[in-house]
Amino acid sequence: MATATVSQQIEYNRSAGAVSKRLRSASRFVRRQPLGTFGMLVIIVLVTVAALANVIAPFDPLAQAQRSALQAPGAEHFAGTDQFGRDVFSRLIYGARVSLYVGIGAVFFAVIPATIVGILSAYFGGWFEYLVQRLVDAVQAIPGLILLIVIMSVLGVSLPNIVIALALPASISESRIMRSATVSIASSDYVDAARALGAHDIRIMFRHILPNIMSTIIIVASLGFGRFILAESTLSFLGYGIAPPAPSWGGMLAAEGRAYMFAAPWLLWAPAVALSLVVFGANMFGDALRDELDPRLRGSR
């Protein structure tokens, strides 16, 4: 009984210490990275809004009401209405789902393959690395937007295809970052030691290399999040985005904002502000994470 009490006390102290440590880390992050904190809050708000869109949105984002068309922002419609009489604020809220879906989806499908290819390339080297790096060179030689448009033209317009179109070239390009991060670790003493002890290649890569490039992965992911949201808007603006009438911020800019920018400028403001804010927030958060997690930058603060 006494033994149990002591071990429980030790466990309690350990977890309390861990919580306390995390709180201190968070407090330090907030103190050192005010812009990064702001970015984090923006992303949290985006996630919350996207998740609770059907609760928060005051109107059906697709419901047309011709009599209410092109109303300026007011008490009933916070962000005004578009040419179909649809509530812009509600469309903005539902549009957040698309941004979040694309942001998270593209990050997931870009970073995971990039990490695998990057680690394999750096770890095995030789002809495999040579082939992979020439492929990266080839992809990076093609203008990004052209490549996106070509992929979308081939795949056709749909939300999953947008994710694929954004993730595919990014996964190839970002594999080079992962490779660079892996190269120095793959030649470190503790990797050699693990190999000498008979550890399998896969175990070395998963247990010894991957955790040590995690900060790079997090940074690439957080910066990619904002970039992919912006790229989705660009695709929507060019007509390769999500099919109407579903709302997306890029689509709102292209289909409604541009056409009525003089007569109803609020159609432009609402998605433009939301887009800028989220991309800015994601970039700030990514920068702050890099500052915190990259040991080479710690001294420079």
Partner: peptide, 19 residues
């Protein structure tokens, strides 16, 4: 069809028709 001028109208017509 994409483009501007009357193409915007054909897109808006499509959305109103759909609704």
């Amino acid at each position: 069809s994409p483009g501007w001028s009357f193409s915007d109208a054909t897109k808006e017509n499509a959305l109103r028709f759909q609704s």
